[in-house]
Structures are given as structure tokens and as C-alpha cells.
């Protein structure tokens, strides 16, 4: 982010608005809010240059709780509005705050096109696999069989994997993080801000009211080290309480191995390369169920839409004989009436 003025020093309090936070007690949304308020002072961006845009849903109340610029818009359409903000003023740090219903269902089309274009903005998707604000219907990420108010006998619609969908739409930056992990979440927000291009962060966000515990199997403090692999660029893909599990490539599949067993040493373990353009391995990581991949899975730097547009505009400007609108109006086939 380039800023025109010297960056001021902030603490998280500088990003807290005077509005009372109205999420349910115990909701992971509080963790996301606090992580963002802590990440912003570390980003090197002036407060007046930060904009939060949201759609509709629990997640989308987010902008009201920040003391930055913000707009709470309409269901599913935050990517369009955020794109307009960023294209109008590329100096801004623009954040789309959305949920699985907002971005995967009603806003699914905007979601994929945002990622395809690679505008330099960030999207945080609060995935709780349920509709919270409308009081508990299944969402496009709800699992088959899930009993909800609109699927009392179990959900019959197979879900999306947000990460797979995102990579299919050519996302250049994709990260996944548990909603109970503020420390890593904060760092991922900073990484996303620094990344030039569209960044997508999927937060596995527990809904305490309508889908409580849906991620416990992987995010619970007791099990998370064994059930998750936290990926870091340039580091071997090792996980487990004892740091003895790792990932290797076996033919066309990722396989979990134990270091020290069957002659496996640390050298055999894959090293994470988030910056690789080829997304084959990133897709495998996104799909992996055990262990669940978290951290920055993909971070491939590509040309942004703004860069392409700026280059074209500069070129057209330098070749054009039109400086003012009048130059155009009076050009070409004109004639005089006397």
C-alpha cells in the first residue's frame, strides 16, 4: 500500500468505533474484529485510507464496529461496491467482509469475478456453514445431512469448498484460519494487506447459536495441532503435537507420513511454496481433509487489474490529441452554419 502522507502510529483502540457490538456472546466474530483492530496498526496505513465494505449477514455488521470508512451494503454485492471504491481511489486499503451465504450463495457470481480480476483488495469470509442472521438455514457450505431450520430432515445439497472454488476462479492469495486463532489470524490479515492483488481469507468461524461446534474436530485447542497443518512459505509441511507428522507426494496424492518411521526423514517432507504460479499443489492442500490446511496456502504475485488499467491509460494519454472534452467535441466531421 502506497500512502501519500507519513503513516501515523496507531493502537487497536484507534480502530474501535463508538458503536456497541451486537454479536452473540461467544461468537468468533469478536475474535475477527479484535484481530483486525490489532492488525491494522501493523500495516503501515493511515486510518483515513482504510475502507470496510460488507454485504448482509452477521459478518456484515463488521464495518459499524470499526472507526474507519465503511459501508454496509446489500446482500452479496460487497465485491462490486468494493471494486468501485478501489478503482476510484487505488490509494485506499479496501476490505470486503462477508460470510458463506453472502459470498457463496447470493453473491457467488461477484465472488468468482472479483478473484478472476485480481484487484488489489482483501476479502475476509466468515464461514460458519449456516445462515445466522435469518436464524439457522443451511448455507452453500453446510454439509450433507446437516439438520437446520430449512432442512429439518438433513441437508441434501452438497456443499462448496470455498478454497477450491476460489482457486478455480484463479485466486492469487488464499488463506484459511480457525476462528479461535487470533494470533495467526492477525498475521494473515497483515500478509493479505501487503499482498498486491485480491486476497481471500476464509475464517472457520463458529456460530454459537445455530451451528455450535461445527469445526471443533479440527479447531479445538486439544486437537488442532494434530488435525491442522499450519502452512508457512518456505517451511516444511510438518504438523502434529510432536512435530513428527509431515506431508509427502505419493503419485497424485498428498500422504501423511511420520518422520522416523519407514525410513522417512525431514528431507522427504514437502516444502511449502505459496508463491508458485502452478496451483496444482495448492489445490491438493485446499482439498485435504486430514490434516486441514491452514495459514497462507497460496500467495502468487500477479499483475493487478489496476496495474493493467494504469499502463493502458498512460499509453492512451500519451498518444492522444485530446486534452479537454472540447478537443473531442470539435474534432473530426464538423461543419459551419453561417
Amino acid at each position: 500500500m502506497e500512502t501519500t502522507t507519513a503513516v501515523k502510529k496507531y493502537t487497536f483502540k484507534d480502530f474501535t468505533s463508538d458503536q456497541e457490538v451486537r454479536w452473540c456472546p461467544g461468537c468468533d466474530d469478536y475474535v475477527i474484529l479484535r484481530s483486525m483492530q490489532k492488525a491494522l496498526p501493523e500495516m503501515g496505513v493511515n486510518k483515513e485510507d482504510v475502507v470496510f465494505i460488507s454485504g448482509i449477514g452477521c459478518s456484515s455488521r463488521f464495518p459499524y464496529y470499526m472507526s474507519t470508512y465503511g459501508m454496509h451494503t446489500i446482500h452479496g454485492r460487497a465485491p462490486g461496491i468494493a471494486s468501485g471504491v478501489k478503482l476510484a481511489n487505488p490509494n485506499l486499503s479496501v476490505w470486503v467482509m462477508t460470510g458463506d451465504g453472502d459470498s457463496m450463495a447470493i453473491g457467488g457470481n461477484h465472488f468468482i469475478h472479483l478473484l478472476r480480476r485480481n484487484i488489489d483488495l482483501n476479502m475476509v469470509m466468515f464461514n460458519n456453514e449456516i445462515y445466522g442472521l435469518t436464524k439457522g438455514q443451511f448455507s452453500p457450505t453446510s454439509i450433507i445431512g446437516q439438520k437446520t431450520k430449512s432442512s429439518p430432515y438433513g441437508n441434501t445439497q452438497p456443499p462448496f469448498s470455498p478454497g477450491e472454488l476460489a482457486l478455480g476462479a484463479n485466486a492469487r492469495f488464499f488463506a484459511r484460519i480457525g476462528g479461535n486463532n487470533p494470533k495467526d489470524m492477525t498475521q494473515i490479515f497483515i500478509d493479505a494487506h501487503k499482498f498486491k492483488g485480491t486476497s481471500l481469507i476464509e475464517v472457520l468461524q463458529n456460530c454459537v447459536i445455530f451451528n455450535d461446534g461445527c469445526f471443533d474436530e479440527v479447531t479445538d485447542k486439544e486437537v488442532k495441532e494434530d488435525k491442522q497443518i499450519f502452512l508457512e512459505h518456505g517451511k516444511p509441511m510438518i504438523f502434529g503435537k510432536n512435530n513428527d507428522k509431515g506431508l509427502v507426494l505419493n503419485k497424485l496424492k498428498l500422504e501423511v507420513v511420520t518422520i522416523g518411521e519407514n525410513g522417512i526423514t525431514q528431507e522427504d517432507i514437502l516444502v511449502h511454496n505459496a508463491k508458485e504460479e502452478d496451483k496444482t499443489l495448492h489445490q491438493m492442500l485446499v482439498r485435504l481433509e486430514y490434516p486441514l490446511a491452514t495459514g497462507v496456502i497460496r500467495s502468487f504475485t500477479d499483475v493487478t487489474l489496476e496495474e493493467r488499467e494504469d499502463a493502458l491509460t498512460a499509453q492512451v494519454k500519451s498518444n492522444s490529441k485530446f486534452k479537454k472534452a472540447d478537443d473531442l467535441f470539435f474534432s473530426g466531421e464538423t461543419y459551419e452554419v453561417k
Binding site: 475502507v51 465494505i53 459501508m71 451494503t73 446489500i74 454485492r77 462490486g80 461496491i81 468494493a82 471494486s83 468501485g84 471504491v85 478501489k86 478503482l87 476510484a88 481511489n89 485506499l92 461477484h110
Partner: peptide
């Protein structure tokens, strides 16, 4: 919506 975003941004 992109136009609304641009209007917000001036």
C-alpha cells in the same frame, strides 16, 4: 454496485 462504490470514493 461498482458505480455506488466509486460514488462513495468521490
Amino acid at each position: 454496485t461498482s458505480a455506488i462504490g466509486a460514488a462513495f470514493a468521490g
